[in-house]
Design a protein around this nucleic acid. Sequence first.
DNA 1: CAGGGTCTTTACCAGTTGGTAGAGAGGCGG
DNA 2: CCGCCTCTCTACCAACTGGTAAAGACCCTG
Lengths: 231, 231
Amino acid sequence: MNEEAGGSSTQPGSEAATERVADRVQDRVNERLEARSNTKAQILDAALASFGTAGYDGTSLDDLARGLGVRKQTILYHFVSKRGLLNAVVDRCAGDLTAAMDEVLSGADRDWERVEALVRRVFRVALEQPVLLGLLREVSRPGSPGAQRLRNHMEPMMARARVWIEAEMAAGRMRRADAQLLLISAYSTVVGVATETEVLRAAGIEPTLRPVVQRRRELLSFLRSSLDPRG
Amino acid sequence: MNEEAGGSSTQPGSEAATERVADRVQDRVNERLEARSNTKAQILDAALASFGTAGYDGTSLDDLARGLGVRKQTILYHFVSKRGLLNAVVDRCAGDLTAAMDEVLSGADRDWERVEALVRRVFRVALEQPVLLGLLREVSRPGSPGAQRLRNHMEPMMARARVWIEAEMAAGRMRRADAQLLLISAYSTVVGVATETEVLRAAGIEPTLRPVVQRRRELLSFLRSSLDPRG
DNA sequence: CAGGGTCTTTACCAGTTGGTAGAGAGGCGG
DNA sequence: CCGCCTCTCTACCAACTGGTAAAGACCCTG
């Protein structure tokens, strides 16, 4: 059998008895993992791209498989069901975002600088992986399959950020404001960037980097005016 | 036959030769229009709701028909094809929005007050018809069917707003800024409101009116700081 | 009453959907 | 060499998809 539906491959922590034997074992394991990951990871990538652009319902497993030069059953072997595939994709994206946030939160920046670093980091992810935003957008539609799963990932993230912000406020390093609403505004601004493409064309602008940067500046200035005690 | 796919019923302008005859004719026409509109309008409403929540691909004509207590072919009779139905829905929504904007633009407000009135009006539509935002969101996904059609509706609206804003700027009644980017920001903020529901739950808030109001205040203050010459 | 228009229906269809069953390929350890 | 595990394949399916063809119901007009 395979690991449970939607699970992502985990690096097994190896503890060696004899060095040579351990190395050989490790090599074999790595090979296996690589071989396993190769197809699986490719499927995951393609699925992310398709879910993020065509949506969940707009994605057919047959098309996905055809695009990969693989039979549909290969996909189902690795991810059990279409739903399982979506779950895996959501998990991966949420993981990427959480990792990016963690990186900043364990960094050296403090107070307002940390907020700014956080925003910049998230926007960087958004720019580097536009499909990720597409997926986020797709899956954050109320009632969408995977919405619950996304929520499960977001909840601790949100809670953590909120606790931190409120602590900063209590310590007087940030101006008092509604932390929840602040977070929501920030989040939907980021997702909004993904939404803009069509509107951009309607306004006669070919989609470039500029509006994204504009949005980031906007968000930062909003946050600053809400939070920065220096005004 | 029916009117062309996606067309919305138009009120025929009646010119009477004899009063009584004209009245009778008009009555008959009205009855016909009512009878026609009844099913058709119901279908349109249900379709808007379904497209806006489940998405285009996630909506099946059979389900839609079943929900209305009607056979699927009735839908196809009125709207020719699923795509035609989407077009009609998009047209109606775009019409509602344009009408709301026109109402303000032909009103008495001037300068900054007009901007504020515009924002408030659009938010009012958004609050009164949440499904409309859902549809907008669905259809403004790049590559989505109906995206082109939405663009066709938005383009003149955007152009008109832009011309007006730039004229205001030239006259010194608004601070100079990038009108296009401003419009995009405003638009995606409004659509962002629709996106927020799930995020709200993730943050532990039951969706209420409050965040929407918050977003409106945010947008207004952003626009004010960009545009209002009084600072 | 005949005839035509509007609307809704039944009957039917070819193509696609996600998913199951099971066989075969290839490498591994015993 | 054999059995086992991992992975990919072929073959098949019931359910549903959007859509066509055509008949019947209703109402009005001539």
